Amino acid sequence: MDTFRKFALNIAVFISFFSGLNAQQTYFEGVYSEKKIIINNPLSADLFGTCIHRITINGEIYPFNISDNYLEVDLSLLSIRKGELFSMTIDHESGCVPIIYNKNDFKFKEGVKFISLKADGNKLSWQSQSEVLLSSLLLELKFRDKWVKIAEISSNGMGNQNYEYIVPFLLSGKNQFRISKSNTKQYYYFPVIDMTEQHYKIASNSVTKHINIIKNNKPAVTCYELKDLHGVIVKKGIDGTIDVSNLKNGFYKLYFDTKEEVIIKK
């Protein structure tokens, strides 16, 4: 590699001598797929010499023969590994445009596989394999036979990654969590967490502005659904304080944790 970089430096000095003031740049980014980048290096606009002056990849100059019209760029020579992002800058004369023939071979394709999903108390952990992600991860909990979003977790981006997440609350009984890439429906499920009675309750059944959920006489957060007498959901979410100030006076039924309570809104 030292010999390679020394050669690259010598080539760079040689190229910079011939680079004119009218030089332009072409940029290309992608994910290395172990294939070579195939570039057409056309004649310059004045037909004296070729178009490309210099190729820089991730800040390092890549050596090549400037008289060649057909270039094969091997990213492995710069210790770039499969699945890693790269950025390439091509310095060339104005009036001519280099062509990258196989751009699609390096297209950024999102994908991931999750393994080793574990649940230890309220701590969830998992690993990703061959992760190539821009979007976030979606963590959901099953509540009243429906999946509820608990959190959006930023992805680590590339390669094999380790994740941990501390769940802010658990339900009484069985807790089923699943993780997915936020824009897909491919789900990975954690082992069920079986919890004893969590002793959630509400501070008062008669309210004017807020329903307050407590646990061990302290404010507590959990999943909830609030329905009117017709069974229509008027409020739902994850919280410990439910604002009902905009609801009509009357009777409602609150479902939270594994419990249900009648609420009188005054």
Results as ranks from 00 to 15, higher is better:
I202K: 09
I202T: 00
I202C: 02
A203I: 07
A203N: 13
A203G: 02
A203D: 04
S204R: 14
N205L: 01
S206I: 13
S206C: 03
S206H: 11
V207R: 12
V207W: 03
V207I: 08
V207H: 11
T208M: 06
K209P: 00
H210G: 00
H210Q: 00
I211R: 02
I211N: 06
I211K: 04
I211V: 05
N212V: 10
N212W: 03
I213V: 10
I213T: 08
I213F: 01
I214S: 03
N216Y: 11
N216A: 15
N216Q: 06
N216C: 12
N217P: 01
K218F: 02
K218S: 10
P219R: 02
P219G: 01
P219C: 03
P219I: 01
P219L: 00
P219T: 04
P219F: 00
A220G: 07
A220Y: 04
A220K: 06
A220P: 04
A220N: 12
V221H: 00
T222D: 14
C223I: 14
C223L: 13
Y224L: 07
E225V: 07
E225H: 14
L226D: 12
L226T: 02
L226E: 09
K227L: 04
K227N: 10
K227Y: 13
K227S: 05
K227C: 03
K227R: 15
K227E: 07
D228Y: 05
D228P: 10
L229D: 04
L229V: 15
L229R: 11
H230L: 15
H230N: 10
G231Y: 07
G231Q: 11
V232L: 13
V232K: 14
V232P: 04
V232Q: 15
I233T: 15
V234L: 11
V234T: 02
K235L: 15
K235D: 12
K236M: 10
K236D: 15
G237W: 12
G237V: 11
G237I: 09
I238Q: 05
D239A: 14
D239V: 00
D239L: 04
D239M: 00
D239I: 00
G240D: 01
T241I: 05
I242W: 08
I242P: 07
I242L: 02
I242G: 08
D243L: 09
D243A: 03
D243S: 00
V244C: 03
V244P: 14
V244M: 09
S245T: 06
S245C: 03
L247Y: 02
L247Q: 12
L247W: 07
L247V: 03
K248A: 13
K248R: 09
N249D: 14
N249W: 06
G250C: 11
F251T: 15
F251K: 10
F251W: 05
F251V: 15
F251C: 09
Y252I: 11
Y252K: 09
Y252G: 03
Y252V: 12
Y252W: 06
K253F: 08
K253P: 01
L254T: 13
L254H: 03
F256P: 12
F256T: 14
F256A: 04
F256W: 05
F256R: 13
F256G: 08
T258L: 10
T258N: 15
T258C: 08
K259V: 04
K259N: 14
K259W: 02
